[in-house]
Amino acid sequence: MIPALGLVAGIVVGVLLQPEVPIWLQPYLPIAVVAALDAVFGAVRAVLDGIFNDKVFVISFLSNVVVAAFIVFLGDQLGVGSQLSTGVVVVLGVRIFSNVASIRRHLFSA
């Protein structure tokens, strides 16, 4: 509950402050956000599975973000940044969908 409130509060703060994304962060932020979302949905699913662990959530969140950003960075260095970004987004999207499907089954048996 508190982390959910934190998410909402973060969105509100972001909307109110209207922060300028630094140039060096611009390529990585979208991917990092998607990776973090994947971690969040995975955490919700773990809660429903009864195997949620705070520490695992924190670590997976951070590692997801860092790895996603690193992949994009590596892709940029190799000259395949946009393709690799697309790949990461596709993979994370598939994972988010499967997590959401599992959550749905838990909550609505459907």
């Binding site: 934190g6 998410l7 973060g10 969105i11 509100v12 973090a36 951070l62």
Partner: peptide, 11 residues
């Protein structure tokens, strides 16, 4: 972390 995520999404 969630706070940061929300902030990042908005940004």
């Amino acid at each position: 972390l969630a706070l940061g995520l929300g902030f990042a999404i908005a940004a």
